[in-house]
Design a protein around this nucleic acid. Sequence first.
DNA 1: TTGAAAGCGCTAACAT
DNA 2: ATGTTAGCGCTTTCAA
Lengths: 339, 339
Amino acid sequence: MTIKDVAAKCGVSVSTVSRVLNNHPDVSKAVREKVMAAVEELHYIPNNSARDLVKSQTSTIGVVVRGVGNPFFASIITAVESEAEKHGYSIILNHIKSGEDELTAGAEMARSKRLKGLILMGGCYDYSPEQVASLDVPFVCCTFTNTFGNLGKDSFSSVSVNDRDVAKCAVDHLIANGHKKIAIILDSICDRSISELRYKGYLEALKSSGINPDYDLVEEIQFFDMRSAYEGTLRLIDRGADFTALFVIADSLALAAMKALSDRGRRVPEDCSVISIDGIDMSLYSIPTLTTLIQPTEDMGRDAVRTLVSVIEEGGKHVHLRYDTTLREGGTVAPPKKN
Amino acid sequence: MTIKDVAAKCGVSVSTVSRVLNNHPDVSKAVREKVMAAVEELHYIPNNSARDLVKSQTSTIGVVVRGVGNPFFASIITAVESEAEKHGYSIILNHIKSGEDELTAGAEMARSKRLKGLILMGGCYDYSPEQVASLDVPFVCCTFTNTFGNLGKDSFSSVSVNDRDVAKCAVDHLIANGHKKIAIILDSICDRSISELRYKGYLEALKSSGINPDYDLVEEIQFFDMRSAYEGTLRLIDRGADFTALFVIADSLALAAMKALSDRGRRVPEDCSVISIDGIDMSLYSIPTLTTLIQPTEDMGRDAVRTLVSVIEEGGKHVHLRYDTTLREGGTVAPPKKN
DNA sequence: TTGAAAGCGCTAACAT
DNA sequence: ATGTTAGCGCTTTCAA
């Protein structure tokens, strides 16, 4: 069942059928209807491979995700998927591991799959123009941006929150509750990425309240997963760090940290307050409910696609969208014990 | 950058390059190495559209998932993705909503995308041969099977646990701990799917221990999400149901149920034991750690792909693989209070 | 407004 | 062991 069969069926040439199928204007109404009827009748479905080959591009968007199973990304991906479908694009997902380079992965995928564009999630913040040169399709950074790199603002798009400000906001909330000894759990203070940025926000909050940062309250866990967060929190406690509150840079990690606190006999929030950032579903059901800054995942996923499509189809300009987070007051923050 | 460029670069014909690229045997070692070197140097990446066109099939497997954001599926999908890559297949994901029909979605995707096969997750258990007739590619049911339908065993594959037995096992564990008043939280007792099956296992466990089932202890929540589970548990408690233990059919729902228990002042496990099935990461960090039957998600995802690939490539026979679950004794099950 | 024909990049006969 | 070549199904000039 090819375009040829359809053409034969209604006695026109393949090019005419192609025109009809692609909504080209210069086809007479009569012919158009005849062709449409034949398509219906024969249950003809165009072969995308052939289409893609001749156009030398597919209508597919690649999504490169760093951080397998991060539930925060899951909800964004869902939004990306449904928005892409609305615009007639398919999504092809590529999960990469911590060590892998998302630009290389993206470039390879873009070329071998002839993608129209790329959405990067959980990526790095310091791309250089040279690295990006290998990409021959537009891309948008979703949930992060190129803070540390030196890319031109017009060479890519981004949809994200301001990680630094959000982190500051979280820590400010702890301070407003009377905390001064605030520990932080993060991957690394210098990953040139989300972790570093949120660390800066943490420092800024302390500074603006006149609190001296204490490096003994910083626990770097290297890997972004619950297990590392759990173990890191145990280390923090076991080395006798003196803190009344904990800022964890992501909800999933915060849940693991709460478990560690519990395992060491510290009650949340009586003995230790906890706050984080993300707003994943799960964190609504922790006991107590996690106090966190909710990121608008639906909006971000949707806008990532819209932005990309606009760049692809209309040669639209690259944009950098920033979103506000919402403080959800759960039950994990309370004033420190007086003693 | 095409196969032609590579051929020119090393002074051989395109077919030789093609042979090297596709690991055909009859190429001399010297030529093979020369070609490989050129491929490296030119950063040549084959155009899949062209490949797919000439082979008149893509090397893509469709994954239809019912149940957006179910963390249990996330880990299986990860395994599916990496295994597929090993075999040279791409994955195209399609999340469908509760109401949608996965067979229709799969059939449409298979045709327009020229898929080689389909993996179905979170599907229904009672397909009929007529429904399946619309599918022109092999499929494997992942995490479920066609228990209620009347499909021939050789018309599809499945990788799953025996839901009924696993549920019985979970409830047996509660009974072994001395519980007799065991409530259950599930979608529906007659969804012709996982929920119904696990309900049967629950009934069976009660029966084999001589406990009379009490329909007042059954809470149907209709939707498979945390919110519904939370609200369902509240309803169960608020209507005065008398139970000392709770069997929830999935980890994510169990976490929400625990929250509801907590919100009503019931301690786990002192006032109420909780057990479920799945073994998602998150449930390891609940407080207390959820006692659950762990499904081997990695194995299931991997074997779903292997099975499908074997059917596709070698005309292998359809198989039905069953897996054992592992009881993880967390801290949510204890003997009932004596009073 | 329509048709003929030239590829898109690749694989797989078939030929050497 | 290697090269030549005919398509795979489609879009798009170019011509009519």
